[in-house]
Design a protein around this nucleic acid. Structure first.
Lengths: 151, 151
DNA sequence: GGCAATTTAATTGCGCACAACTTAATTGTG
DNA sequence: CACAATTAAGTTGTGCGCAATTAAATTGCC
């Protein structure tokens, strides 16, 4: 183990941290036009795909818990983009659904992926390859983490 | 532009967001033993490398502003790991330096990079390659962002 | 059927990130 | 030298992330 192992620029974690924050900076002005924050946009992506989901399903898709999602959904409700209601078959669950306004917002988001693609200055194949490596990495890390914490 | 462009799992941004948060989860229990949060650890990495830096230099290294760093440094001071003082040659700048305790903490962090490496379940060369791609991506995104916002 | 264990959300508290603003010191220019 | 422009930190306010706790509904087991 060399000394350079503790240098900032040699850390994979810092490269991830920086790239993740930087891409959110690129999204910010585009999402601002839609009145969304970045995590709110991710929630809308799930809803545009599935129409309606429970908070638990949303949490599974985004790997976020109710501590993050409950207040976020409250803000999306206040913005008139979603509704939420307890399920009649199981009152523990909350079903989140799109309002017509929430569904309509999708049209104003369709050009965002292309704009982001341009900003990366990468070939489509390279983006797909990088995305795949990151997904595999996340899975490996989740694996190590659950093993380490014995749950 | 296909419909699938707006699917969560197809987004590079989400893969980054998830991997970045996941790796921080793996760091968390290790850093907890040192009494550090993840961003505090990044600050300590810079200080272990350079000994002392101004807040501005720290911000340049981590791409964080005083709004994030000022309160973070206040907490590291309270923990007895760093000192901070206005520069005599330029009272606008604040010099952050390690205390002996802060310097000593490095010894307890030396095995972290290896543990993280194991958790990734990746070959060293692949980690280096991925890190390099992320660094390049961050640079491209920063480039697009500064061009788009004209500064 | 009764009740303990489990499941699902919501709440609380803390520490980032980041935009916007304020304050104070320094630099540059006429 | 005066003073406008710039630079560096700090402050304020908002919205995450995440751990820990609480509350309520459901499930499972006797």
């Amino acid at each position: 183990m060399s000394d350079s192992d503790l240098h900032l620029e040699n850390q994979l974690c810092f490269a991830l941290y920086r790239a993740s924050r930087m891409i959110q900076q690129v999204y910010r002005p585009m999402l601002e036009e839609l009145g969304l924050t970045y995590p709110q946009y991710l929630v809308m992506l799930v809803l545009w795909e599935r129409g309606s989901v429970t908070l638990k399903e949303l949490g599974a898709a985004l790997e976020l818990d109710s501590g993050t999602l409950s207040p976020l959904i409250k803000r999306l409700k206040a913005a008139g983009l979603v509704t939420s209601a307890r399920r009649v078959t199981d009152e523990r669950s909350v079903e989140i659904a799109l309002t017509p306004e929430g569904r309509a917002l999708r049209e104003r988001a369709t050009d965002i992926p292309h704009k982001i693609g341009c900003a990366t200055q990468m070939q489509v194949d390279d983006i797909i390859s990088l995305r795949s490596m990151l997904t595999d990495l996340a899975a490996s890390l989740a694996d190590s983490h659950t093993k380490a914490t014995k749950d």
